[in-house]
Design a protein around this nucleic acid. Sequence first.
DNA 1: CGTCAAGTTGAAACAGGTCAAATACCGTGG
DNA 2: CCACGGTATTTGACCTGTTTCAACTTGACG
Lengths: 251, 251
Amino acid sequence: MEDPMLIPTAAKLSAFVGLSASDLNELARLSRSDVQTTAAKMDLISEGENPRSVKLILRGWACRQKLLPDGRRQVLAYLLPGDICDLHVFILRAMDHSITAVTDVTYARLGETVFEELADAHPRIMQALLWDALVSSAIQREWTTNIGRRTATERVAHLLCELFLRMRLAGLARGNVCEMPLTQIDVADATGLTAVHVNRTLQALRAEGLIEWRRRELHIRDLDGLKSAATFDSNYLHLDHDEDRLSVREF
Amino acid sequence: MEDPMLIPTAAKLSAFVGLSASDLNELARLSRSDVQTTAAKMDLISEGENPRSVKLILRGWACRQKLLPDGRRQVLAYLLPGDICDLHVFILRAMDHSITAVTDVTYARLGETVFEELADAHPRIMQALLWDALVSSAIQREWTTNIGRRTATERVAHLLCELFLRMRLAGLARGNVCEMPLTQIDVADATGLTAVHVNRTLQALRAEGLIEWRRRELHIRDLDGLKSAATFDSNYLHLDHDEDRLSVREF
DNA sequence: CGTCAAGTTGAAACAGGTCAAATACCGTGG
DNA sequence: CCACGGTATTTGACCTGTTTCAACTTGACG
């Protein structure tokens, strides 16, 4: 069996709570149950559909998105390996947006009962999932702010900064490099800009020596510089965890 | 004692689940416990503070907001009477935004244990609160879309449409009129526009006969027209409830 | 080596921003 | 009841960041 800490979900949740060996095994087990694949550009679930499972992204990138009747597209979130969608989604009748594969995506589907069992047998995982859900909401708020009140350069820099830090948190960055499979159109639809303007903005960020981005690989050349170009403040990612309440305790 | 259905929270949650007389009484009871008041423009809780209670808005309007270092302001959500903030917020160490009173606000503070008790004694309320939390997330996503991909006119029309429908859901509209205590600056900071441009946009909406807005009162003169000017689709409010699973059952 | 998607460039247009002054509104105290 | 002061709204003139459109280049892949 693979090392459970290599599972991005485990890496990420561990940043919040200490997880026991048994917790880590449980995450590994969940990552092997009901595994599905979706090709790039296809929906994992479409707007209007009735959600029947929580999705745990194992490999590849997905996004939440809305389409307006005339085709305008807004990306609401990027889902990276290790991300979990919509802990409590069973309560809703219909999706108000779709979840779409950016690259080919492999994911596990978790049914409603999984969480009832988790709450009993692995309360620490459940608490970490709740934390993760709250962080997802916080990210959504930060995106609202990003689009509403930042300039084009700040928006793009902010997005890249966030994605890099999240990839690193999931154990998916090597040094200051991470995979970046988005197109400039994807960046545009996430930041409320046009692809043309994103292109010019990226050129400026490159010219300032802040980033390089070629062949689906993002190199952060100056993280502090990028953060300050973005007015980036990582508080919304809630990476500070409460050591007292949440450290590992093996029973 | 007042009629429990007059409590806006009860009105709103009833739109989702059927609540028993005992549930309604419990909501009335919660609305009387630990009641606080905050004057307009003051924070109910500030960014960086450690959240110690869930807030239930009883009277007046509040907002969630973020301030960038240079003073730019983004309103993330408006909280109307009956709204509940952040069901699971105890898990987080620090607020990533502040909750600020728009008008004078009266609210009840609910501690962590309240929800443990509710889950046992009033599971139907708990389920409704979970639904409400999911709808709040959905609203946040819609705002991201609004700011990212709609024109100024669409944005403003969309915001007014949403606020009116939410007020009506909470039992706080008379016909096609509701209270609207926001300034044009508030609307601007919620839609990613400037106050000057909001002003011109509102004049256009008035000229088209869609709304009137004077003395803190909004009159919707043509709801369908306003919706279509906004490309408004109410699906994100998740007003459709599942009769089978969620109708009242008295035991 | 051809094809299709993604990225880049330039020129022109415009939605919305900025600045600054004028007006209306509203509660308060004389 | 009116004058006052502060806040919110409205107006006009001008400006600019971003969009639009259309063409061209590069890159990935069978």
